[in-house]
């Protein structure tokens, strides 16, 4: 039997979205959702909650998992999202395994006139804390803030920095660990300490 999604679609998705809004507005702060959903095993509950909140039959999702996995069937069942194998056609992309991390420039950064038609990446990470590994500056950050996202390589951050030179085109990212998450919009400058 299919595992259930939100207890209350209306109120749970509002609560999750509100934390995500504040996370996107304040890059590098760690937000948490207290909603515990029992998604299939390879989806962390925070990632499940975010994807239920964002996806519907109008979204196109790319993922590093096979499309016939229980995780993808669960997402499709609860949201109706379409799936794609082409990274540059995805509105959302989900990485469940940081071993399979790809150069973010393989996704769609939008165009100069329509930078909003870009892919938003959702990563499940092995951990998340505010140790001084990455120094973040940019809109939403008063002076600077620090974050540590184990498993995301220095090369990945270098590729991201190169890609974001095409601003306003660019890729926004959400990192999830268990029920906690943090967002790095394209405007956030990331320095590896």
């Amino acid at each position: 039997m299919m595992q259930k999604g939100f207890d209350s679609e209306v109120f749970d998705s509002q609560a999750v979205f509100r934390s995500l809004l504040l996370a996107m507005a304040n890059p590098g702060t760690i937000a948490a959702t207290d909603i515990n959903i029992s998604c299939p095993p390879r989806l962390q509950s925070g990632a499940g909650a975010l994807l239920l909140t964002l996806l519907d039959f109008e979204t196109v999702l790319w993922t590093d998992m096979d499309t016939d996995t229980p995780e993808m069937q669960w997402l499709h069942f609860h949201t109706g999202t379409r799936l794609t194998h082409a990274p540059n056609r995805a509105g959302f992309a989900l990485f469940t395994d940081s071993e399979k991390l790809m150069d973010p420039s393989r996704f769609n950064p939008g165009t100069v006139a329509s930078p909003d038609i870009s892919t938003t990446l959702v990563f499940q990470t092995r951990g998340m804390d505010q140790e001084h590994h990455l120094r973040l500056t940019g809109p939403g950050i008063e002076k600077e803030t620090f974050i540590h996202l184990p498993g995301i390589t220095t090369a990945f951050w270098e590729n991201r920095a190169i890609m974001n030179q095409a601003y306003p085109a660019g890729i926004d990212m959400i990192f999830v660990h268990a029920r906690r998450f943090t967002a790095l919009p394209r405007t956030t400058k990331v320095g590896v300490c």
Binding site: L21, D116, P168, T187
Partner: peptide, 17 residues
């Protein structure tokens, strides 16, 4: 709401757009 929420996130990521 979902559609508007997705647009809000994009708006925050591209200030002023």
């Amino acid at each position: 709401k979902k559609m508007i929420r997705r647009s809000i996130l994009k708006a925050l990521a591209i200030p002023g757009f």
